[in-house]
């Protein structure tokens, strides 16, 4: 693994967006991710579910190197993840991420939140960045809030701004880390609608979520994780109607009653 990560690979345009193979992660002595293997094709929508503490969030946070993995390999868009800071930045530019707690920048307006990265990372003229931002803010249906500060918006609105902010970087892959868990129930729908729309537009998506309705409607595959390992992967139909593994059955019985 040490040798392979030193080999320079030129990005090849192929069918695969993310390839994780034999990936392990430890927090100190604690083995949090065990032998994770997952290949995500372009345009594919993956929903990752599992009990809390099963390593779902940790896994997707490894994909854009918010967490470091210790063993195995992750290749994102043809670029292998190593400790090379340049490559990590390259990958992060192309992988959007939406967080459970929105993490909007409270000192910037909604519009500035959306234009910050395009201006400083993509070196885009301000006008163009603002046009793009307004385009995506319209798509998440809050163009009229552009000049407000995040603190003035509801949770659902904030999360939609967070989605728009990521989209402004025109990412090739979008990752969602429990995007609706911190929302009041009446706001969940507006965020999910936005995500469904995004899925219909053909975005490659990895969503950690407990919204099983969303999984049924949108996912190409559902990944079930437990105790740091991938236990079962299947199409939503099969997954919900015909779970194979004992732990999957137990989990589904707990959330679907």
């Amino acid at each position: 693994m040490a040798a392979s990560s030193l080999i320079k690979t030129t990005p090849v345009t192929n069918d695969i967006a993310v390839e994780i193979s034999g990936m392990h992660k430890w927090y100190g002595e604690f083995h949090v991710l065990r032998d994770v293997n997952l290949t995500v094709r372009r345009g594919e929508k993956i929903v990752i579910c599992g009990p809390s503490g099963s390593g779902k969030s940790t896994m997707i946070r490894c994909i854009n190197r918010l967490e470091e993995h210790q063993k195995g390999s992750i290749v994102v868009d043809g670029i292998p993840l190593t400790n090379d800071l340049k490559r990590i930045d390259e990958i992060r530019r192309d992988v959007g991420m939406v967080f459970q707690h929105f993490n909007l920048f409270p000192h910037l307006t909604v519009l500035e939140n959306c234009t910050l990265a395009p201006i400083w990372v993509r070196k885009m003229p301000q006008k163009q960045a603002e046009e793009i931002a307004m385009h995506y803010l319209s798509r998440v249906k809050i163009p009229d809030q552009a000049l407000k500060y995040p603190g003035q918006l509801s949770g659902g609105q904030q999360q939609r701004v967070a989605i728009a902010r990521s989209l402004c970087m025109s990412p090739k892959i979008m990752m969602f880390d429990e995007p609706t868990s911190a929302l009041d129930p009446e706001m969940v729908k507006e965020v999910l609608d936005t995500m469904v729309q995004l899925a219909q537009d053909g975005m490659t998506m990895l969503c950690v979520t407990h919204e099983m309705g969303f999984a049924r409607q949108v996912a190409d595959r559902v990944v079930f994780m437990d105790r740091g390992e991938i236990v079962e992967v299947n199409t939503p139909n099969e997954f919900f109607s015909n779970p194979q593994h004992e732990r999957t059955k137990l989990f589904l019985s707990q959330i679907l009653h």
């Binding site: 069918d15 390992e229 199409t235």
Partner: peptide, 28 residues
């Protein structure tokens, strides 16, 4: 380890074996 393949033929995967806890590499 994994019986999933790329393409449309086989997307399902069910873990049969159990990965035990491995000791962390020395650097962690």
């Amino acid at each position: 380890m994994s019986d999933q393949t790329i393409g449309n033929k086989q997307v399902a995967f069910v873990r049969r074996d159990v990965t035990g806890t491995l000791p962390a590499p020395i650097m962690t």
